[in-house]
Design a protein around this nucleic acid. Structure first.
Length: 265
DNA sequence: AAGCAGTCCAACCGCCGGGAG
DNA sequence: ACTCCCGGCGGTTGGACTGCT
């Protein structure tokens, strides 16, 4: 059972890429563009798995990559995006031009986690670290917590796409829907309520990544309309929010106000 | 100078979702 | 509706590097 391997592993190189391999890959992609990764190695004369070629290109060889240290602004943006999206590194990377998901993931695990812990903030929940039983339940180890988006349940339900995470550092300015007072006790890592309903049915946040709602960009798909973050992040239709986004752009918007520094839901 | 521990990060692995047939 | 293939994603690994003793 199971799937066949993505390539014939017996005849593929593994490990670090050589300069020659890099040059072959770059030359091929320059000539043919990014295309079928599965057939690329053969056509480019590389003894590599197609996945490996893709990864090497995406994470290291792409000409638009920004190398070097992360700035403080990038740090803060990553933290805010992570609070919203959880470990959706590709979505986070989409908001940081020149940065790759792998780079951000590594940076998160090596720097930002520590930075947040030093601030007394749980890097998974983005809430102040607690002592006692609650903290114990939150700190179930990096691994266990890291593979689930932190769709915890704040007093005011905040919604995310089914697979994304809930934010902790953004406040909802929309009147929250009625919420069960037993909500806190019913926290679930699955992001659902005790009734089985999605806990996060309706998310829309202003991350200040792009233009603010009060100053929409001139090139907004719908001209003078502001752009919903969900749309900006690539969500279409109603999968992320109720902003009526479609392939031509969001039609209707609701915005949320970021919390002040040190303010938590 | 040598050994060790901690850190960094490129790369791999396995799973998932979307599209095509 | 179903299966298969492929690209993409997130978690993890392991080698290289750095700092400390």
């Amino acid at each position: 059972m199971g799937r066949s391997p993505c390539c014939e592993k017996a005849h593929t190189n593994k490990g670090a890429w050589t300069k020659e391999e890099d040059q072959r890959l770059i030359a091929y992609i320059r000539a043919h563009g990014e295309g079928c990764w599965r057939s690329l190695p053969k056509e480019a004369g590389l003894l590599r798995c197609g996945k490996s070629c893709r990864l090497r290109w995406m994470n290291y060889l792409r000409p638009d990559l920004k190398r070097g240290n992360f700035t403080d602004d990038e740090d803060e943006l990553i933290i805010r995006l992570h609070s919203l999206l959880g470990n959706k590194w590709s979505l986070i990377a989409g908001q940081l031009p020149g940065r790759t998901d792998n780079e951000i993931k590594n940076y998160w695990n090596t720097h930002i986690k520590r930075k947040l812990l030093a601030r007394g903030i749980d890097p998974q929940t983005h809430r102040p670290l607690l002592t006692g039983s609650t903290a114990a339940s939150n700190s179930g180890g990096d691994g266990a917590a890291s593979n689930k988006a932190p769709c915890f349940s704040p007093p005011h339900p905040i919604s995310v796409p089914a697979k994304a995470a809930a934010p902790a550092i953004f406040a909802v300015t929309q009147p929250p829907p009625p919420v069960d007072s037993s909500d806190e006790g019913g926290r679930s890592s699955s992001g659902t309520t005790s009734t089985g309903e999605p806990r996060c049915p309706d998310l829309n946040l202003d991350l200040s990544v792009g233009p603010t709602p009060s100053s929409p960009p001139a090139e907004t798909p719908t001209s003078s309309r502001p752009v919903c973050l969900c749309y900006h992040l690539g969500f279409r239709g109603r999968e992320a929010c109720s902003c009526q986004a479609d392939s031509t752009g969001p039609q209707e918007f609701r915005y949320f106000r970021p919390l002040e520094q040190g303010q938590y839901i």
